[in-house]
Amino acid sequence: MILNHSLVASDAFEKHLVNRRRKMSWGMKAAGFTLMLTSMVDMFSMLVVFLLQTFSSSPEILILKGVELPNSITAAEVKEAPVLAISKDGNLYLDQKLVGMTKDVMTKPEELLKKLNGIKHNWAQSHTNPFSGEINLQADKEIESTTVSMVMAILTSSQFQSIQLAVMGR
């Protein structure tokens, strides 16, 4: 939209007024604007290309609130598996559901083992191939490493032998 100031001046005085108005409006910006579609399409295309490049098709796992994962320089891709999480306050969660305090679970692991057996049972019902034994373990980087190793021992005793320790990739 461009505002047109053209007026047909009937006499010399009117012409003079129109010219004066035009001269005064030279410094002013046009009230309308033209949308530059070409540059907008360019920008959109670049954005789409960038976002498609960063698009990840690998499965994502939810990080438990309050868990600060350790950093790793040799992180591999996340695999889809049940998630066992140990929070900083000592709670143990299996697939976002509270199992109990980690120290209690370590002394009496029956409940955790029962839930793990349930996962194995569900796997056997929905898969034809043998149980892979994969599980994702999330733990806060500040907790004792012996706590993690004890939980890992419980997992190993329940045939979860391929443990994926969740880390932050750099």
Binding site: V48, L51, L52, T54, F55, S56, E60, I61, I63, L69, S72, T74, A75, A76, E77, V78, K79, N136, M152, A153, L155, T156, Q161, S162, I163, Q164, L165, A166, V167, M168, G169
Partner: peptide, 19 residues
């Protein structure tokens, strides 16, 4: 769609074989 589905935090795994 791509902005909503974009993952900004890169989570990886370190595999431990207990067997």
């Amino acid at each position: 769609f791509l902005l909503i589905t974009a993952v900004w935090i890169e989570i990886g795994t370190v595999e431990v074989k207990q067997s």
